[in-house]
Design a protein around this nucleic acid. Structure first.
Lengths: 122, 122
DNA sequence: CTGTATCCCATACGATACTG
DNA sequence: CAGTATCGTATGGGATACAG
């Protein structure tokens, strides 16, 4: 029964067995990096994000934004108390520490898509 | 019913709405980056990987290794046909293009764990 | 406009036992 | 040693309708 003796890393109540898995626990999933990627250069409203990510559902976008906010990566600002509501999302300082990483992720995906589509066309 | 007109990226039969999501589709999940991380500097046997990742189950490790192999990121080499079997996993050239990214992922997780644990101790 | 509420499903992952 | 087989569960995420 000896629980495996590995020093786990901790972030916000979650345990991770490896520094790589900690990062993935925070930015993993289907949409989080996409949201962060779109927020690198500009703050965006809920609907603007939705248009940038046409295949996401409202519910999922909402949940992921909330998760990112809870982890302190993005900030939600409300600009009016009465409908029509205006809400803007932007990176926090903590979130900004992810910019180089997000950009590397995007670049690698870009290069793979390019190479792969070349191999499979013409 | 107009299907949203966004040029999707393609890799191995999967469609991604964003270069960032393509990357995450390939290295996402709970274990893939951990496996790749451990393979950066050395080829490892199945059991060695298992010891490096004490909380993974045999089944999951096996599935993730197979997925990584199918995506061309790692290579599986068998060194004997009769038990005891010896199998080694290592990065392919394609997989090696991920090294800087994996390292960034690990480093970010590391720094977060450090900062977070300092804030929460002593 | 910015979300929630329900409902549901696919898949990822874990636990355990067993095999070539 | 290096896995499969089987089963069970948790959760991520989609569809749709509705609300402040």
């Amino acid at each position: 029964m000896k629980t495996t003796e590995v020093k786990m890393l901790n972030f916000r109540g979650n345990e991770y067995p490896c520094c790589a898995s900690l990062t993935m626990g925070i930015i993993g999933g289907k949409w989080k990096t996409v949201i962060l990627f779109h927020l690198i250069n500009e703050k965006l409203r809920y609907n603007e994000l939705r248009k940038s990510m046409p295949t996401v559902t409202e519910r999922t976008l909402s949940l992921q934004l909330k998760a990112l906010e809870e982890d302190g990566l993005i900030k939600r600002k409300v600009f009016a108390s009465k409908p029509p509501l205006k809400v803007e999302y932007c990176l926090t300082d903590f979130g900004k520490t992810l910019i180089p990483l997000i950009q590397s992720i995007a670049n690698w995906g870009d290069s793979v898509a390019e190479k792969y589509s070349m191999e499979n066309s013409v």
